[in-house]
Nucleic acid binder design. Sequence first.
DNA 1: ACCTGAACACCGTTCAAGT
DNA 2: ACCTGAACACCGTTCAAGT
Lengths: 219, 219
Amino acid sequence: MTEQRSRRKRRGAYHHGDLRRALLDEAVRTIRADGVEALTLRAVAARLGVSRTALYRHFADKRALLTAVATEGFRMLREQIVAAWTDGGGGRAGFRDMGRAYVAFAVANPAHYRVMFGGSVPEAGDPDLRREAAGAFQALVAALVAQQRDGLVRADDPTQLAHFVWAVVHGVAMLVIDGQLHDEVTATVAEHAVERIVTGIEARDVSSYPSISWPRATL
Amino acid sequence: MTEQRSRRKRRGAYHHGDLRRALLDEAVRTIRADGVEALTLRAVAARLGVSRTALYRHFADKRALLTAVATEGFRMLREQIVAAWTDGGGGRAGFRDMGRAYVAFAVANPAHYRVMFGGSVPEAGDPDLRREAAGAFQALVAALVAQQRDGLVRADDPTQLAHFVWAVVHGVAMLVIDGQLHDEVTATVAEHAVERIVTGIEARDVSSYPSISWPRATL
DNA sequence: ACCTGAACACCGTTCAAGT
DNA sequence: ACCTGAACACCGTTCAAGT
């Protein structure tokens, strides 16, 4: 621990810590602070006080490092939305908090969020990455299933519903961190989207809405 | 015209065409074929048969070129969704086509679409870029206003509604081109999203939905 | 499982001097 | 409004030889 804190090391010594972890953390830190385009392997190594070649003992190349950064991002995202759902006590209130937490994560870590979705990682097939991305998605599905059990969400295929909800929060998050939305309207749009999601997926008595053509019927 | 087609030029000759346009087109072509990360100014110049320094007569730097690429992308996107709306005869059917056209553009030009939103262009303040992005958004607003006039969409603030619709189609588009959605479910999710948008924004008699808390009331 | 040091090919960008 | 040609600083990556 103390060894990881001292960035400069005495000549001739080895790192001896968890270098993979240290490299990953430093990469995340750099990306968060200055964006992906500012990330250079040489600078990461220099800041950790290791040689430039040391990185290749843990990552095949720069893309592999970015894949790990993205994987880490999905893990953090899952933790935060699950915490929001739990702390919110589940149900409709917890689900709203979950949606807000998702957008909040993207807004708090725009550059990191971009690495997760921005295509800088064509290694979309990486098993670890796929597992973590699927894990975050499953947290959403689980919240929907729980609400279905309580009669709060219609009995549609939860995976289908989750895809829709994901698209909305992801779309809002991307537009916000892209600066496409003015600051004044950001919060309003996010709340609006959350409400549209809730009213769009909520359970209701179908028979009382005669004029609405349901998605199932039109597919 | 014919001169622009011959990529290789005789020694000592000038380009004498619309070099700016040629550089932009070649950049778009490269990005479409191989992605942004494969775009190098040297290769673009070489393929056009001009010197590497010629580019700097038209673009301040690489970022300026990418900004122009993004601007061009928004222009193309606007043209295609407006055409879909018009060809679809407006109304609810035209609006569905518009949504499909949006996602279709992203799917057909994933790398280009990413440049428009991927943050590779921190020049978000560029006036031309802002104007074209706003233009595409306005096409969406106009379609919503037209539907409101026909009583097809609720009388909420159209800009607000447009933000929501944009977030949904953008979210779906991003998830699809990111490979987060399996191919089999892509079309289904897109159609589901379009239907959710339509039913989520459609005009209906509020008095007959006593249990629904409307967004306005909760903001 | 790291280190040093050198090297390679490639990049964006600048400059000087032309036409 | 272009051209040539040289140069600079920086990059990811590899290799050889160590401990």
